[in-house]
């Protein structure tokens, strides 16, 4: 049903184009328009995405220290190095722990927010904006706020001030890895940054659930609240949930900014991209090994995405309806 509504909105557009075509001649030809609109993106895509990807794959087969135009072919040597590197493998574990926290937490929080905001009678737009706004904040800026004002280790940090009211000693959230409080900082900053965006996705999906379903359910005696949520809302959100989880998983794999900015000179809590950054752009500037790691990571993301799609049925949603 979500399909019907959007198609309904989308359909008038092509109709208009076909009407104006004869008058505007060549300029309005759909080929021209296609290139006009996609061209800039395509050029950007090629220069900033496809060329670097290709270059990186090429680099991964070369001994490329301190250079990005290497000449010494080493075959799979870089792959061997990356896969036997304890730090890199450790980073995959870190990522798994991180994803296990962040994916369900963001999913639940953004769904919860969407349900709350969707129920509001007044100021709905206001709250929608309030929760969405953090999406516009950069990860770096947010990390610095978290590090320097909310979770700094001194007595006037926000978190320590609150704990101080209950007589709890100051906690060095980020300096001391034992107990690993740094996860709290990392997870909360990401929740704050991400939830609003996924909340909007859920609100859109919630608004696409036809009222008739709820009416029919209530006629059949379903109680509003948990029962309706469990048997109508949740199944109707399945397609969106799948997409959200997929996006969250990819985003978790790509985690970099907050880890890099929050954990300085640490050996713990290093996700794959931070490890790759250190490998390629650290003291050694080993672009070959770094690229090999990037290829491994990309393959891993592809596999996980495909498997997840298989399990949760990504893309099947529409056909089955």
């Amino acid at each position: 049903m979500s399909t019907t509504t959007t198609r309904g909105v989308a359909q008038p557009a092509p109709a208009k184009v076909s009407k104006t075509r004869p008058r505007r001649g060549l300029r309005a030809s759909s080929t021209f328009n296609f290139w006009l609109f996609t061209g800039p993106f395509l050029i950007g895509l090629i220069i900033f995405v496809f060329v670097p990807i290709g270059w990186s794959i090429w680099l991964s087969f070369f001994e490329a220290r301190f250079t990005v135009t290497p000449s010494e072919f080493v075959g799979f040597e870089n792959y061997k190095q990356v896969l036997t590197d304890a730090d890199f493998r450790g980073s995959l574990v870190t990522f798994t722990v991180f994803a296990a926290f962040i994916v369900p937490a963001t999913w639940a929080l953004s769904l919860g927010l969407a349900l709350l905001v969707n129920r509001l009678r007044f100021m709905r737009a206001f709250f929608r904006s309030v929760f969405f706004l953090p999406t516009a904040v950069s990860y770096v800026a947010a990390s610095l706020i978290w590090k320097m004002s909310l979770f700094n280790g001194v007595r006037f940090g926000l978190a320590n001030t609150v704990l101080g009211w209950f007589g709890v000693e100051n906690i060095a959230w980020l300096s001391n890895p034992d107990p690993p409080w740094y996860w709290l900082v990392i997870v909360t900053v990401r929740l704050w940054l991400q939830s609003g965006f996924y909340m909007i996705l859920f609100i859109a999906a919630l608004q696409n659930i036809p009222r008739e379903l709820y009416e029919a359910a209530s006629l059949d005696g379903a109680k509003p609240g948990w029962q309706t949520f469990r048997h109508i809302t949740l199944p109707q959100l399945r397609a969106t949930s799948t997409a959200v989880i997929l996006l969250l998983l990819v985003a978790a794999y790509q985690a970099f900014d907050e880890f890099f900015n929050l954990l300085s000179k640490a050996t713990w809590g290093q996700p794959p991209l931070v490890e790759l950054y250190k490998m390629a752009l650290g003291e050694n500037q080993n672009y070959g090994a770094g690229s090999a790691g990037a290829v491994v990571l990309t393959l891993l993301i592809c596999v996980v995405t495909l498997v997840q799609g298989k399990i949760m049925g990504f893309g099947r949603g529409e056909e089955s309806k």
């Binding site: 979500s2 959007t6 993106f41 900033f48 995405v49 965006f197 999906a205």
Partner: peptide, 25 residues
């Protein structure tokens, strides 16, 4: 679903454009 996938596409485009602009800048 397509509602959200449309949004995803938009977001991706926006991100890409932003990245492109940032890099070009």
């Amino acid at each position: 679903m397509s509602a959200s996938s449309n949004m995803n596409w938009d977001r991706r485009n926006v991100l890409r454009a932003a990245m492109g602009l940032a890099a070009a800048g």
